[in-house]
C-alpha cells in the first residue's frame, strides 16, 4: 500500500481528490434536494445580490451596478469587508452585509469570482474620437508629467486584473467607472493604505475621468478574461489591497 502510494503518488492523490469531490457532489445533491428546504447552494444564498448584479454576477441593465463575475476573489472580498464596515459607502450594500461573518463573505467572493458568464458586447461610445483617444493614451501609457500611471501598469496589459486583489476593468459601463473614479478623487471611496487608487485618481481631472471611463467601456471582451496570477508583473508602487 505504501509502495503503491509512493510509486503512484500523483495518481493516488488525484484518485483521492476525485473520490472526495464525488462524495461532496453527492452530499451537495442530497442536501440540495431536501424537501421543503431551500437548495443548499451558494447560488441560493446570494439571491439577495441578483436584482442588482445579475443571477451569476454578470450585471444588469442598471449602468451603476457593476459586474462581479470573474473578478479576483481577493478584490471582491475586500469590497465586501469595506461595505460591511461602512468604509465603502452605499447604504443598500452596507445594510445587507452588516451582520455577516468573514468566512461567509469570503465564500460569496469566491462564488462570484468563479462564475464566468460571457462579457457583454461593448457599447458604442457617446463621446468624441478625441476624447476616446485621450482615454486610450491615459489607460495604456499614462501621463508621466502629471504622475499618472497607465491603467495597464496595475490592472494588467489585458486589463483583466491580477490575483488576488486587483480587479479587471472590462465589462463595466462608463457611468460606473466614472462614478468610482470620482469617488476615489473626492475621497469617498478609500482602501487599505497605501491607497494606490486614491493617489492615482487625485491626479486626474474630470475630463480625464470621462475619457478613461469612456475608452475602457468600449473595449471588446478579450479571449481570456481571467485575472492573471499573482506576481505576473511588478506593480509600479505599493498597494494596500495587493500585499507583496
Amino acid at each position: 500500500m505504501v509502495r503503491f502510494l509512493e510509486g503512484d503518488g500523483v495518481f493516488a492523490r488525484y484518485l483521492a481528490l476525485a473520490v472526495a469531490i464525488a462524495t461532496l457532489a453527492a452530499f451537495d445533491d442530497a442536501a440540495a434536494q431536501t424537501p421543503n428546504q431551500p437548495p443548499d447552494t451558494m447560488a441560493a444564498r446570494v439571491e439577495a445580490c441578483t436584482p442588482c448584479h445579475g443571477n451569476r454576477g454578470e450585471g444588469t441593465s442598471d449602468v451603476y451596478f457593476p459586474r462581479l463575475a470573474g473578478k479576483p476573489a481577493g478584490y471582491l472580498y475586500n469590497q465586501l469587508l469595506a461595505f460591511r464596515s461602512g468604509r465603502r459607502k452605499y447604504p443598500p450594500m452596507n445594510y445587507l452585509l452588516e451582520f455577516l461573518p468573514d468566512p461567509y463573505l469570503e465564500a460569496m467572493a469566491e462564488y462570484f469570482a468563479s462564475e464566468h458568464p460571457p462579457l457583454p458586447p461593448s457599447a458604442p461610445s457617446e463621446v468624441s474620437k478625441d476624447v476616446l483617444a485621450h482615454g486610450e493614451l491615459l489607460a495604456t501609457s499614462g501621463d508621466a508629467g502629471r504622475n499618472i500611471p497607465a491603467c495597464v501598469s496595475c490592472h494588467g496589459p489585458g486589463l483583466t486584473g491580477m490575483q488576488p486583489g486587483i480587479p479587471g476593468l472590462l465589462g463595466l459601463r462608463a457611468n460606473y467607472i466614472s462614478a468610482q473614479l470620482g469617488a476615489w478623487r473626492y475621497g469617498t471611496r478609500t482602501a487599505k493604505s497605501p491607497d494606490c487608487m486614491q493617489l492615482v485618481a487625485g491626479h486626474l481631472t474630470e475630463a480625464d475621468v470621462t475619457a478613461v471611463a469612456a475608452w475602457l467601456a468600449t473595449r471588446p471582451a478579450p479571449a481570456n478574461p481571467a485575472p492573471v496570477p499573482k506576481g505576473t508583473y511588478a506593480l509600479p508602487f505599493g498597494c494596500g489591497s495587493q500585499p507583496n
Binding site: R45, A48, C52, L96, F99, P101
Partner: peptide, 22 residues
Amino acid sequence: NGGYPPGTKGNPMPYGMPPFAG
C-alpha cells in the same frame, strides 16, 4: 430593501431576501 438575517454560530451562512426597491 431585502435583508440578511445575522450570520451566527447556529446559522453561519444565512439566506438573504433580495431588495425589490429597483
